[in-house]
């Protein structure tokens, strides 16, 4: 019974929307720093992504209920949106990290906070473990306890990895 519609109704993005929200390949593949991917398909009264974007890449909203529209040519991959979005719906993905790995900049508000060099589980949209990733950096852009975890993981999962889970270390 888990068709696309049912999944979407419970908070999982459909294949069609994943494609729609994907940055254009031509801009994305060589963009150092990466580009923002914003998975916010519902009209709700909320605009911090746009009002916090220092590059003007997430266009200002005419109506507070607008869904984000991104001018990817202006996005610098700074990931301020990832830190500012109250819905944790903004991610930055840098496809230039290495020949086979992308760098995912993902919002994170759990404990423990992993450190650079740690291995973490990379999760898909239903919490499935897709790969093991390596934490390359941990930032706190807004100084408000929402961290942005920079994690390297297989590039072919660029459309699928959207969260990380700290892996318990053996004591």
């Amino acid at each position: 019974m888990d068709n696309d519609g049912t999944l979407f109704s419970s908070g999982v993005l459909t294949e069609g929307l994943i494609r729609e929200m994907r940055p254009p390949e031509s801009l994305w593949k060589d963009k150092k720093g990466g580009l923002a991917v914003v998975e916010c398909p519902q009209r709700i009264p909320c605009d911090p992504c746009a009002s916090n974007c220092p590059a003007g890449a997430i266009k200002p909203f005419a109506d507070i209920n607008d869904t984000p529209v991104i001018d990817h040519s202006r996005c610098t991959g700074c990931a301020i949106c990832a830190a500012a979005c109250p819905g944790l719906a903004c991610f930055v993905i840098d496809l230039t990290f290495s020949h086979d790995k992308a760098l995912f900049k993902l919002p994170y508000e759990l404990l423990p906070v992993p450190s650079r060099g740690d291995a973490v589980d990379c999760l898909g949209r239903t919490g499935e473990v897709l790969a093991s990733g390596r934490v390359e950096a941990v930032t706190e852009p807004k100084r408000d306890r929402t961290r942005v975890i920079h994690v390297s993981a297989p590039k072919d999962l660029a459309d699928h990895i959207r969260a990380v889970r700290a892996v318990k270390r053996d004591v």
Binding site: G11, E39, Q42, G87, A89, G127
Partner: peptide
């Protein structure tokens, strides 16, 4: 209900941490 009543992004946030939402 047949869909979440709260904001979709709130649902997405817990779904990707592995919580099933049983409609």
């Amino acid at each position: 209900m047949p869909k979440v009543g709260g904001y979709w992004v709130h649902a997405a946030k817990i779904r990707r941490l592995g919580v099933p939402i049983l409609l």
